[in-house]
Design a protein around this nucleic acid. Structure first.
Length: 314
DNA sequence: ACCTCATTTCCATACCGAGT
DNA sequence: ACTCGGTATGGAAATGAGGT
C-alpha cells in the first residue's frame, strides 16, 4: 500500500510540478502527516524531492528529474489512451482506478511521447454502447486505406476531402470537412467533422475516397471531439425513423427481448390468449409489443421470431 | 508587524508478527 | 495469552516563509 502511494506521489509530482502536501493527502486519502513521512521515504531512496515552505509552497522534485518506468513506444502509449476512452470502466466502478492508472502512465511516459498520447485521448473516442435504435445490419469494416486517411487527417489537423455515399443513396457526394476525430461506436467507425461549420457524422465504411488537403483544419473554438460527438449522438437517437414492428414474446423473455433488440419496449399488450402456444410456450401467455414514435425501431427478427398481426390488441 | 499558509515536531494509537 | 519491537498513521502545536 505504501509503496503504491510512494509511486503515486512521485508520478503526481512529475506531472504537476509543485503540489501542497494537503492536496496530495486529499488525493491519496491519507493525512498530510503521512505524506510528509512518504516524502522522507522517497528522499531516503534517493529521489531528489524537497518541500518549500510558506505561501504557495508545496512539495516538488528537483527540476529535470524524471523516471521512465514504462518502456512504451509512442504507438503503444497512444494505443493505451484509445482504450482509456471506454465507458466500460465507469460501468464497473473502475473510473477512479483508470484515471489514476492513466495519470501514472502519462507521467512516466518519455517526454517526446506525451503530446501524442494526450492528443490521442482528444481525437479518438470509443463508445461501446449500441445505438438506441439498435443498428445491427452490415457491421461492415471499412477498407483499411479509408481509416488510415481519416486517421492521418485527424492527427495532422488538416481539412479532408471525401466522397461519401449516404444511407439509401446510390450516388456519391463530395464534401470538404473539418475533422474533430474518430469514434468507434459499437464496433463501427465514424468520422466526426464539421461541414460548413456544422457538426456531421460520417460512417467510415461509406467513405468511398478520402484525400488529406494542405489546408489547416478549421474547428470551432472550444469544441472538442467529445462535445461534437455528444451533439451528434443525441441527434441520431432522436431521429423518428426505423421500422414499426409488432412482436410476440413470451412474458418471461421480455427482458431478454429488449436487451437483444436494443430497443425500449413501448407497451406490453394484454395476454394474447389463444396465441399462447404459437411458439410452443409452456410458461404462460404471449405478449404483444411494439415501439411507437418517436422510437419505432426494433430489429428482433431471427432471434425471437415475429408474430405479425397475431397479437391481440385491446 | 502581523497574518496566512505550509511544513515540522512531538506524541499517541493501532496493527502485526515474533518470541516467550 | 501476553509482551515487545517495528511500522503505519493521525492530531495538535510549533515553526518558518512570504505577502500585505
Amino acid at each position: 500500500m505504501k509503496s503504491d502511494r510512494l509511486l503515486s506521489i512521485l508520478l503526481l509530482l512529475q506531472t504537476r510540478g509543485r503540489v501542497p502536501a494537503a492536496e496530495l493527502a486529499e488525493r491519496l486519502e491519507v493525512s498530510a502527516r503521512t505524506i510528509y513521512r512518504d516524502i522522507d521515504s522517497l528522499s531516503a531512496a534517493g529521489v531528489p524531492v524537497y518541500a518549500e515552505r510558506g505561501r504557495h509552497g508545496g512539495i516538488a522534485l528537483l527540476p529535470g528529474f524524471r523516471t521512465d518506468v514504462t518502456g512504451l513506444t509512442a504507438d503503444e502509449s497512444r494505443a493505451l489512451f484509445v482504450l482509456a476512452a471506454q465507458s466500460a470502466h465507469s460501468a464497473l466502478g473502475l473510473e477512479k482506478a483508470l484515471s489514476s492508472a492513466l495519470r501514472k502512465v502519462m507521467a512516466a511516459l518519455p517526454a517526446p511521447h506525451r503530446p501524442a498520447a494526450e492528443l490521442t485521448s482528444r481525437r479518438i473516442l470509443v463508445d461501446p454502447d449500441r445505438w438506441l435504435a439498435g443498428t445491427r445490419r452490415g457491421d461492415a469494416v471499412p477498407r483499411p486505406v479509408d481509416l488510415d486517411v481519416l486517421h492521418t487527417a485527424v492527427f495532422a489537423d488538416r481539412r479532408l476531402r471525401i466522397r461519401y455515399r449516404h444511407s439509401g443513396e446510390s450516388e456519391q457526394r463530395t464534401y470538404t470537412v473539418d475533422p474533430y476525430g474518430l469514434v468507434a461506436k459499437a464496433g463501427t467507425w465514424y468520422l466526426v467533422a464539421d461541414r460548413r461549420g456544422r457538426p456531421q457524422l460520417f460512417r467510415a465504411d461509406r467513405v468511398a475516397a478520402a484525400t488529406v488537403t494542405d489546408a489547416p483544419v478549421r474547428r470551432r473554438d472550444g469544441v472538442e471531439l467529445a462535445d461534437a460527438w455528444d451533439v451528434l449522438r443525441r441527434e441520431v437517437e432522436r431521429r423518428p425513423e426505423g421500422v414499426r414492428v409488432r412482436a410476440r414474446v413470451r412474458r418471461g423473455r421480455l427482458d431478454m427481448f429488449t436487451r437483444i433488440s436494443g430497443a425500449s419496449l413501448a407497451r406490453v399488450l394484454p395476454d394474447a390468449g389463444a396465441d399462447a402456444d404459437a411458439h410452443g410456450a409452456g410458461d404462460g401467455a404471449g405478449a404483444g409489443a411494439w415501439a411507437p414514435d418517436p422510437y419505432p425501431a426494433l430489429y428482433p427478427f431471427g432471434a425471437l421470431g415475429v408474430g405479425g398481426d397475431r397479437s391481440v390488441q385491446r
